[in-house]
């Protein structure tokens, strides 16, 4: 598929339910100061609604990753709070955090696949750790792999796949437990333009099905093309928040 052809298949539509929107992730006066007085985030206020597709842009060190990490509870604010629906994430008991994380699917630049497991096993893994029965795993993993277009490569190992294919495995794994939010931190950072666009299309499709997507990226071309909400960050501060933005730092 060429990028040109792909462009036409992208569903470009506005968020029609803007008024009745339900906040799914809310940052309330969030600051994150790392030891050594390094300020990663400074007084962030941000609301992401159910079903939204939010792109976070900014240079390296702008605080994008820190912001995303707080969504999947890998980092906690120094001051301020992050809410999942009405629930403050910092109030979740440590013991219960794994259960909270099942609401969030994560995708990274470096794919984070287990090298010695097949595509099928990598995706199945996310269900296994939850104690899902084998029958359920056997049924759902191929379905998800079909969605990302890897149904014919289930027995391949990550090393036998291209970067784009690996990222699709990682996306399938993030989707397998039907998360409410997909957090994608530079998912296309290591990919060629064609693969990048394939991943973007998948993310858009997932979003179309109702999953909230929070994407951090450097890639100005895709930001301009998808015409979704853009949050621009600079040195730990949100400098712009545009409903249908383009990439302009």
């Amino acid at each position: 598929m060429t990028t040109e052809a792909a462009e036409h298949t992208v569903p470009v539509h506005d968020n029609v339910e803007q008024d009745s929107a339900i906040p799914i992730i809310t940052f309330e006066n969030v600051s994150r100061i790392y030891p050594g007085e390094f300020v990663a985030l400074s007084d962030i206020n941000l609301t992401i609604n159910e079903g939204e597709f939010v792109t976070i842009v900014g240079m390296s060190g702008a605080g994008k990753s820190t912001l995303l990490r707080m969504i999947y509870a890998d980092d906690m604010p120094t001051t301020g709070r992050v809410f999942f629906y009405e629930r403050p994430i910092d109030a979740i008991k440590r013991r219960l955090l794994p259960f909270y994380r099942r609401n969030i699917g994560t995708v990274f630049q470096d794919f984070k696949l287990l090298p010695n497991r097949t595509v099928f096993e990598n995706v199945a893994y996310a269900l296994e750790v939850q104690g899902a029965p084998n029958a359920e795993i056997e049924e759902e993993v191929p379905q998800i792999l079909e969605i990302v277009g890897l149904e014919n490569k289930m027995e391949f190992f990550p090393a036998q796949l291209s970067g784009g294919e690996q990222q699709r495995v990682s996306l399938a794994r993030a989707l397998i437990h039907r998360p409410r939010v997909i957090v994608a931190d530079e998912p296309t950072g290591n990919l060629d333009p064609v693969s990048t666009w394939e991943i973007m299309q998948l993310l858009l499709r997932i979003n179309e099905y109702g999953t909230t997507v929070v994407l951090a990226t450097h890639n100005d071309a895709i930001v301009d093309r998808i015409k979704k909400r853009v949050v621009v960050m600079d040195r730990g501060v949100i400098v712009r928040d545009i409903a249908q933005g383009t990439y302009s730092l």
């Binding site: 696949l113 893994y125 996310a126 939850q130």
Partner: peptide, 10 residues
């Protein structure tokens, strides 16, 4: 890390 990300309990 992956285990944690996919929601495996400690």
């Amino acid at each position: 890390e992956i285990m944690r990300l996919v929601g495996a309990s400690n």
